[in-house]
């Protein structure tokens, strides 16, 4: 087996910080598109946030959406082009704060799309403010004393929340803190896309990911934070699999 850059991933340096999980997740998505042979019929959405420049890295048609609106945009595209593969790539602020309504309703309608949800528990692009998924006690630039000390409430668990909806087909939470989990993440992403290709409906893969810069730790500590702290709040696993496979 060879390990080299896959075709869907543009051969360039990313703007991501050292140790950021986005680069890993981009690569996994690109590899899955190529393995399934669907790159040329794929339309992706780019979010607002660190991954806004997604189109600089992925070799497929991409539409950059307003903050949080990707599921609505993807709904329209997929309904009009059902033979194409449509996926959204969203961060935690995009998907679980400003775009929560779009997320819930696209999921509940059972839109036949794939959602790649990157949860790094912080607003990265804007400089480290509290995200809807920031952990209790976790410091951010808007919760300097740690989340929860000023009525911020606990982190939102999106997989658990969406698992209540009958319209949803597949929900899995994975992580990219180590190679073993990266391989599992790819499997989940592949399943998310296969579900769409086989017409099964709404799939979301939540990926716990590192943000060393805004967590203000080293890349190795960040991987450890995902492994210990994030996983204990956001347990990995399949939250819904209507297909039962």
């Amino acid at each position: 087996m060879n390990f080299c850059r896959t075709e869907s991933l543009i051969d360039t340096v990313t703007h991501y910080c050292p140790g950021c999980g986005h680069g890993i997740i981009h690569r996994l998505v690109a590899e899955v598109l190529d393995e399934l042979g669907v790159r040329e019929k794929t339309i992706a959405t780019a979010p607002v946030g660190c991954a806004v420049l997604f189109y600089n890295y992925m070799k497929c048609d991409i539409i950059e959406c307003a903050h949080g609106r990707s599921p609505a945009v993807a709904t329209a595209i997929k309904r009009l082009l059902p033979e194409n593969v449509v996926f959204t790539y969203q961060g935690d602020g995009d998907l679980a704060a400003i775009g929560m309504a779009e997320t819930i309703h696209a999921a509940n309608r059972g839109e036949n799309i794939t959602v790649i949800f990157v949860n790094n528990a912080i607003y990265g692009m804007t400089g480290g403010q509290m995200a809807p998924t920031t952990l209790l006690g976790q410091m951010s630039t808007t919760t300097e004393a740690g989340r929860g000390n000023n009525q911020e409430g606990p982190p939102i668990k999106v997989c658990e929340l969406l698992s209540m909806l009958d319209g949803v087909t597949y929900l899995e939470r994975v992580a990219v803190n180590d190679a073993k989990n990266v391989i599992k993440t790819k499997k989940a992403i592949r399943k998310g896309f296969l579900n769409q290709i086989e017409g099964r409906g709404f799939s979301m893969v939540e990926v716990l990911s590192m943000c060393p810069t805004d967590w203000k730790v080293s890349p190795l500590k960040a991987a450890e934070f995902v492994n210990i702290d994030m996983k204990s709040v956001f347990p990995l696993g399949v939250y819904k699999d209507e297909d039962g496979q």
Partner: peptide
């Protein structure tokens, strides 16, 4: 698998590099 920047590549087989 772990490299966020696809800076490492490994070729294990002589045969195909045109995956």
């Amino acid at each position: 698998q772990m490299c966020p920047d696809v800076a490492i590549s490994i070729c294990n087989e002589k045969t195909n590099t045109k995956k």
